[in-house]
């Protein structure tokens, strides 16, 4: 308990120090308030723009959530298919790596030409940004299931579906949630990136507009909201993972021996 308190205190001090440095730079800046707005200025921008920020954040979250959902569905399907039918695995993964290596920033304009600057482009980019970590983590987890647990099931005459349901899936779920903690913030990033290419609303486009208007406090306010969203997405899946898989090795104290 006292160790926890120490950690909390330590991180509190670190954040305060960071805020102090920020404030110091803002105060020493030649043209106060232009490039380095003081924390208080950003705070007041956040408050004044709360309506617009909330609306834009809602748009971005919607795009990111749809993209994330699509990515997870696709990645899980591919991981399971390549696990069941090993010969498929090679070509499916080559395809996935090919798609992954496409620079999203270059792909976004192409998608706008194809599908217009509506929701579709953002969802696709968000999905592409979050797809790969889910696929890789899940594939890895399915392949590294405790081989003895698999033998145990086979020796007892279990069907492959039973092996999957009772052993492989539960072993893979914590890894899947670990992947979500990376993929969900990536989806938010992808959605904002896609908005830069053209959008009516969203945090990304608000960010771009405030940059073009030289409205630095608003720029920082957008940045703060975007960070908060990513952090919330990470935190949500981390906590959910802990809640759902309290047995997982990463959450256990050192293994006890007889």
């Amino acid at each position: 308990m006292s160790r926890r308190l120490g950690v909390a205190l330590g991180s509190g001090v670190a954040w305060l120090a960071l805020l102090g440095i920020w404030w110091l730079i803002a105060a020493l800046e030649n043209h106060p308030g232009t490039l380095w707005p003081a924390p208080a200025q950003v705070g007041s921008a956040l408050w004044q723009l709360r309506g617009a920020l909330a609306q834009n954040a809602a748009t971005t979250v919607q795009e990111a959530a749809l993209g994330f959902g699509a990515a997870v569905a696709l990645a899980v399907a591919i991981a399971l298919a390549s696990e069941r039918y090993r010969p498929l695995a090679g070509s499916l993964h080559q395809l996935a790596i090919g798609v992954y290596s496409l620079p999203l920033i270059a792909l976004a304009p192409v998608l706008v030409l194809w599908t217009g600057s509506g929701l579709t482009t953002k969802v696709i980019i968000a999905a592409l940004a979050s797809f790969f970590p889910v696929l890789i983590n899940l594939t890895q987890a399915l392949r590294t299931t405790d081989p003895q647990a698999l033998e145990l099931m086979r020796a007892a005459g279990a069907s492959s579906w039973q092996v999957f349901r009772c052993v492989e899936l539960p072993y893979a779920l914590p890894a899947l949630f670990a992947a979500f903690t990376i993929a969900a913030p990536a989806a938010i990033l992808g959605a904002m990136l896609a908005e830069w290419v053209g959008a009516n609303s969203g945090l990304g486009i608000q960010l771009l507009n405030s940059m073009q208007n030289g409205d630095v406090p608003q720029l920082y306010a957008c940045l703060a909201v975007a960070s908060a969203l990513s952090l919330a997405a990470w935190l949500a899946f981390t906590l959910l993972g802990r809640l759902l898989f309290p047995w997982h090795a990463s959450l256990q104290p050192a293994e006890r021996r007889a």
Partner: peptide, 19 residues
Amino acid sequence: ARARRELGFVFQEPTLLPW
């Protein structure tokens, strides 16, 4: 024999499912 579940197997590691 396996299909008729006539075999019980105990491994060196306990191999319990942790969840």
